[in-house]
Amino acid sequence: MSSGITVNGNLRDDLEPGLSIVDLVTRHGLPEEGRGVAVAIDGEVVPRAQWSSTLLEEGSAVELVQAIQGG
C-alpha cells in the first residue's frame, strides 16, 4: 500500500513513514551535511538542525531543492 509520500511532486513508494530528512537527503546521493540543499515539508522549510529529528509521515509532501547555476 502506498504511503502517499511525495518528493518534488512524484509519489515515492520507495520511501516509508519514519524516515528522517537526513535519510531522505543521503538516499538522493546528497551530502549528509547538506551544503547547498534545503527541504520543505508541506510548505514549511525544515531547519537543518532538525533534519535528523524530523520524520516523514503518511502523505508528507516534500520539496527537496539545491543550489544550481543561475542568475
Binding site: N8, G29, L64, V65, Q66, I68, Q69
Partner: peptide
C-alpha cells in the same frame, strides 16, 4: 546561484 528541485541526473558539485 538559483534554487531548483533536486534532479537525479545532476552532475558535479557547483557549491
Amino acid at each position: 546561484v538559483a534554487m531548483r528541485r533536486v534532479e537525479p541526473t545532476q552532475q558535479g558539485s557547483l557549491i
